[in-house]
Amino acid sequence: MILIAGPCVIESKEQIFKIAKYLKPYSEKYNFYFKASFDKANRTSLASFRGPGIDKGLEILNEVKEKFGYKLLTDVHETWQVKKAAEVVDVLQIPAFLCRQTDLLVEAAKTDKIVNIKKGQFMNPEDMKYSVLKVLETRGCREANYENSKKYGVWLTERGTTFGYGNLVVDMRSLVIMKNFAPVVFDATHSVQMPGGAGGKSSGKREYVAPLAKAAAAVGVDGFFFETHYNPDEALSDGPNMITPQELQNILKDIDCINKCKEN
């Protein structure tokens, strides 16, 4: 099972290493990727914390790789960031708001890294096939299906769909639909986000992370994405929808149980 975990954004080297240490047990049990963003370019307000930037951020992530041996995942927002990030990380993540950006997808596809495309909050899951194809065709493959995407390193991540103003819902059918095109990861923490719900920044309801994750496990996905922080209420980005390492441990126990039942 793919497991992506880590904080929303790099706040400091101390913060990153503290969270990375908490997550060590999972790197030995799952196909684990440590996630953190060097820049959050789509914050609601200009005053919101964005991160240390690409150079300092990648330097810190590289130190995490050297110390813990983790595979790494980070976001890229612009084409010029792709080559730099690919020198350090193992997965290039295309943010949900940019999932149709052809130049960004093609530039990521030109690397030898896995490309994780987050489904836009505004997207029909059926149409994510065409985002996948932009990567596959750049890599020499002309048919978007699960096996081809697995072979050529393309993932899709579900993170909820806009439902009115300031709210997201998860249509579990999207997990089944998108699995026709690529391995699917369920982003349980962003799926409980409430965009713009805290007056100039996003809010969220982390009490729904566990139920949604268990529902996704029952439907059947290839992996899970959990933004994790030792003190979510003091986090500088996405605090209301992040979970603690202890909460992550409890959720993963339930997911493992569901997966074991399905195998039997």
Rank of each mutant, 00 (worst) to 15 (best):
E14K: 03
Y30H: 03
C8R: 04
F34I: 01
Y30M: 02
I19W: 07
E14Q: 04
E14Y: 00
K13C: 04
Q15C: 13
I2P: 03
R43K: 15
P7W: 15
D39C: 13
K18R: 08
C8K: 07
L23N: 08
N31A: 04
A20R: 08
E28Y: 08
I16M: 11
A36D: 08
S12Q: 04
Q15M: 09
T44W: 00
Y22I: 00
K24V: 08
T44R: 01
K18C: 01
F34R: 05
K40V: 12
R43F: 15
D39Q: 15
K18T: 11
C8I: 09
F38T: 00
P25Y: 09
L3V: 10
P25M: 09
I16F: 02
A20Q: 11
I10H: 14
L46Y: 10
L3T: 09
K35Y: 11
A36S: 15
N31E: 10
A20N: 07
I19A: 04
L23G: 09
I16K: 00
C8Q: 11
Y22C: 09
Y30Q: 02
I10C: 09
E11S: 12
K35N: 07
F38C: 02
K40A: 12
K18H: 06
S45L: 07
Y33T: 08
S27V: 03
S12H: 03
Y22K: 03
Y26V: 00
K21V: 00
A41F: 09
N42E: 13
V9R: 08
I2G: 03
E28F: 10
E11P: 05
K18M: 06
K21H: 11
K18Y: 05
V9E: 12
F17G: 12
Y30I: 05
N42G: 13
I4S: 00
V9W: 11
K35F: 10
A5K: 01
D39S: 14
R43C: 15
N31C: 04
A5H: 01
Q15P: 02
L3P: 01
V9Y: 10
I10L: 15
K13D: 07
I2D: 14
I4K: 08
F38H: 02
V9G: 15
K13F: 02
V9P: 10
E28W: 02
C8V: 10
K40F: 13
T44C: 03
F17W: 13
N31W: 05
Y33A: 05
I4W: 06
K13V: 00
A36C: 04
F34W: 10
I19S: 07
F38R: 09
Y30V: 01
I4Q: 02
F17R: 01
T44V: 15
K35I: 01
F38V: 03
I10A: 10
S27N: 09
K29E: 14
K29Q: 12
R43V: 12
K21D: 14
T44Y: 01
S12W: 03
P7V: 14
S27P: 00
S12K: 06
N42C: 14
F34E: 04
R43Q: 15
Y26F: 12
Y33D: 08
A36M: 09
Y30L: 06
I10Q: 08
F32Y: 12
Y26S: 04
L46V: 15
F38L: 07
I16A: 04
K13T: 01
I16S: 02
S27L: 03
A5E: 04
A36K: 03
S12R: 07
S12Y: 06
E28R: 11
K21W: 08
F17S: 09
F17P: 07
S45Y: 09
F17H: 11
I2H: 13
P25R: 06
K35A: 07
A5I: 00
